[in-house]
Design a protein around this nucleic acid. Structure first.
Lengths: 255, 255
DNA sequence: ACAAAAGTGTTGGATTTACACCCATGA
DNA sequence: TCATGGGTGTAAATCCAACACTTTTGT
């Protein structure tokens, strides 16, 4: 290794955030409008520089709070706040025209909440349906190229990061209890089902879904309360149980 | 964001490699002996600095070749070389006492091959069974605890990186065709089964395993040849098929 | 009464498991 | 001939998809 560590090449390290929620039966991502060049005026994922004495996860949590007011769920704290996990790292030379930037992308799953107001400016941040941000039929698909090429709506390589985050969310709710991170602290089986339907983009049988989730040990614990906020017969309320991995997993149709 | 991009904090960016193979019915990882401080003389994962005009994956492939002579499987090239994918990024301040280093770990799955000879020194690189490198009974939580609490055998935070890589490999062979990356270009069903048994640390029924893998579309394609290198009745030889995702998945017992 | 959503029962088909049994080779 | 690993058949248990049907509310 003919490489001198004391002369290591300097990189800028940032975190980018794929913040997902389910609103009005659609999977949505948080995007912010860029105020500066490059890509001025374009939408981008929230993010920023990692500070020199700051852990990567801490930087992601800080940026999340700064840009959305959301807080991250502590390890002890059972479901007050959002789920955060590292997604992947993007370091292509030239992904930022200004300098060599390595970005550690993180994935955040948040319950539906009032439209966030950024640190200062209000209409420079919004929830956008992922279908409107991503080329259609992309993620699961493997086939040849389709969608004859509208302009990429997101700055930098953020479309790819978003696609990776959406794909991660789609597969993780299959074998983990993470779908509850999209729900308020107390929720019904029907609300949880609508999360799965929105994230996967499929319709699920309500009867079989109910049996499945209530029969998976540790997934849901009843609170005793009921609600009629969805109309119809009152539904039991549940909280997320202690299980993190689902056994048996939820089965996504076809694929 | 009161942050001046022109004064971004400088980071060193490295790649670390979790290189796994199956030898003598055990899952093994590649480790190198450190020649310099800190952790001088201790075993560590191979890795090195990312060059200033180099993509992250390219840096990982370069380090792999430099330290082991292994080559990475091209996207077109069907199974000549190893599988490489990004694993996760580790950037805790203080993980390297010399400076702020963010390391993008990569996972490599390689077939069993003659003991690698590093760029120069021969006995400073070796295959070590992961059971001997990791705290006992940790991930899969199978056997009783063995080797009660020696000091951490790997430098830096490499034990954690290795554990994450092993866990990724264990779960990925379940729903992808990646187990074939541990096999030579042509292999038998029994050899593939021994890969699963070594990685998962379980015994599988040979009859049901055979039916399952040969019945999963796109997983294996017969070459027409046979071999008796395992003894007993001649076994058909197979190559990896085009499928990357396994449907239905292989099922890991209990869990 | 009616619509809407929650939940339970049942049934046929698919999948999984466990294991009996046969096949083809080397020693 | 025996030991060894390769491979097929089969039956019980289990799981899952589909859907008929009942329950409990709001209007």
């Amino acid at each position: 290794m003919p490489y001198d560590p004391s002369a290591f090449p300097p990189f800028a390290v940032t975190v980018d955030l794929v913040v997902l929620t389910v609103r009005r039966h659609a999977l949505c991502a948080l995007v912010v409008r860029r105020g500066e060049s490059p890509y001025q005026g374009r939408w981008a994922l929230p993010g920023g520089f990692v500070r020199i004495e700051e852990d990567l996860g801490a930087a992601a949590a800080r940026e999340l709070t700064e840009e959305t007011g959301l807080h991250v769920q502590g390890p002890d704290d059972r479901h007050t706040g959002a789920h955060l996990e590292q997604l992947a790292t993007y370091g292509d030379p030239g992904r930022d025209p200004r300098m060599r930037v390595v970005s550690v992308a993180h994935l955040v799953l948040a319950p539906d909440l009032p439209t966030p107001t950024a640190g200062g400016d209000a209409d420079s941040v919004r929830w956008a349906p992922v279908d409107s941000l991503l080329p259609p039929g992309q993620p699961c698909g493997d086939g040849p190229d389709r969608s004859g090429g509208q302009p990429d709506p997101l700055a930098f390589d953020h479309s790819r990061i978003l696609a990776d985050g959406v794909e991660r969310a789609r597969s993780k709710i299959e074998y983990s209890s993470l779908a509850t991170a999209f729900c308020p602290p107390e929720f019904t089986v029907g609300e949880l089902r609508r999360v799965y339907e929105a994230v996967w983009g499929v319709a699920l049988d309500p009867r079989n879904f109910h049996r499945k989730v209530t029969g998976t040990p540790g997934f849901l614990v009843p609170t005793g309360g009921t609600t009629t906020r969805q109309g119809g017969r009152p539904a039991q309320l549940f909280r997320a149980g202690g299980a993190t991995v689902l056994n048996p997993p939820m089965l996504r149709p076809d694929v």
